[in-house]
């Protein structure tokens, strides 16, 4: 266990000053997610253009440093990606948080990979994995426009 690995500078910085913590004007996809164990909640907004490319992504909600940083980094890097690319990135991220040593998606730049890998410290804290993944699951349901709220168990 290593707290420094979990609470890296970039996580603390994003946690304190989350990017895109607002409601996208004219959003056309959104979904809510909550973590019934701790009461954290999040609302993800996406604005897709005619070519199904994410023009803007944002979120509202409250949570721990890990969940805020994860949502912040996610909404930043998903802009400019289309649905297919975004979903592949989600799979890649969830795989990395669970078991994979690295990120593989060709849709992620090296810089983006480095940023996301800052969240890899969560692996050692199984109870906190859901904090890192809630916003990602919620974004997928926004794409799919599922009506039900997302609940994470892992």
């Amino acid at each position: 266990m290593n707290l420094k690995e979990l609470y890296q500078e970039i996580i603390l910085e994003h946690g304190k000053n989350p990017r895109n913590l607002r409601k996208t004007e004219g959003f056309n996809k959104d979904a809510k997610g909550n973590n019934p164990l701790c009461g954290d909640n999040i609302h993800v907004y996406l604005k897709l253009n005619g070519q199904k490319i994410v023009e803007d992504a944002s979120f509202e909600g409250s949570g721990c440093a890990i969940s805020m940083a994860s949502a912040s980094i996610m909404t930043d890097l998903i802009k400019g990606k289309n649905e297919h690319e975004a979903k592949e990135i989600v799979e890649d991220f969830l795989g990395m948080i669970k078991e994979n040593p690295e990120l593989k998606s060709k849709y992620l730049s090296e810089d983006e990979k480095t940023k996301l890998m800052c969240l890899s410290g969560v692996k050692q804290y199984p109870m906190r994995v859901k904090c890192a993944t809630l916003s990602w699951h919620t974004m997928v349901s926004a794409f799919d426009e599922e009506m039900e709220e997302v609940k994470t168990e892992n």
Partner: peptide, 12 residues
């Protein structure tokens, strides 16, 4: 500091 972060840090 969110309570979950507090609990994780104290646990250490």
């Amino acid at each position: 500091v969110h309570p979950h972060d507090i609990a994780t840090i104290l646990d250490e």
